[in-house]
Design a protein around this nucleic acid. Sequence first.
DNA 1: TAAAACCGTGACACGGGTGTCAACGTCAAG
DNA 2: CTTGACGTTGACACCCGTGTCACGGTTTTA
Lengths: 134, 134
Amino acid sequence: MTILEFTTMRIGELAERTGVSRRSLRYYEQEGMITARRAANGYREYDELAAVRAANIRDLVHAGLTLDDIRPSLEMGCLDEPLTEASACAEAIRSGLHRLEKLDHQIASLSEYRERLVDYIGRHQEALAEQDDG
Amino acid sequence: MTILEFTTMRIGELAERTGVSRRSLRYYEQEGMITARRAANGYREYDELAAVRAANIRDLVHAGLTLDDIRPSLEMGCLDEPLTEASACAEAIRSGLHRLEKLDHQIASLSEYRERLVDYIGRHQEALAEQDDG
DNA sequence: TAAAACCGTGACACGGGTGTCAACGTCAAG
DNA sequence: CTTGACGTTGACACCCGTGTCACGGTTTTA
């Protein structure tokens, strides 16, 4: 615990810190997305890098990406620091571009439906106002 | 077949016309999203309304909505004519709004990742240009 | 030392939409 | 009558990330 080189933590702590469930952390590891050393007793020991990655993965998954989508970025080290600061990546971009296409399609579709929905809402907000319990 | 009142068709034809698989058409029906009369032999018989609905559902599902998301709109008759022309709906809107929230979150998240991705790409397009096989 | 809290693995289930296969009925054409 | 295309239902499988449970080992606390 008082090791200075790296802040080492076990799965419970990491889960709490990142908001990623133990289950998911194990799954991410199983999928090769994060790495954990093993203590003598078999317990996983995570370092800061794992924590950063876990958080980044969490964000991307939450945004609707799959682990396979994320993997290339990760393999290029793009997820080794908080997502807010862009690092240097290159090849991951290629697959990123691929995903981007689909992404744009999806966004476009959703936005289109959104528009229509908003249209409806605008047209009938009086009707809604009368009930307004939601 | 030469009935004039409604163009009646069977599942195969509808599937071909809408691009929705037979399997999905049955599933939609099972989920109460579309209706089919039954011929004496048990075959499903679809009318034009079913065709329109099927196409609309197809679009929305393709856009990332679930059948449960779509159901309210459908129940209000919002999907009874081609989606391009907005009809009069009201209560469906309420659940529409609910879905809309999630939708916006998702779109926002995706867009954010998109931005970062585009950033990366911009920064490293030279590297990509050198390989340019994609 | 015993209880409580943590860790390990393995297995099963879910949701949602779809593919696919089996086993069977129906209908039109040869 | 047989063949083949089409229809029916039911069941099982997939993906993907996650929850959860069982069962056992370890660490910490009382």
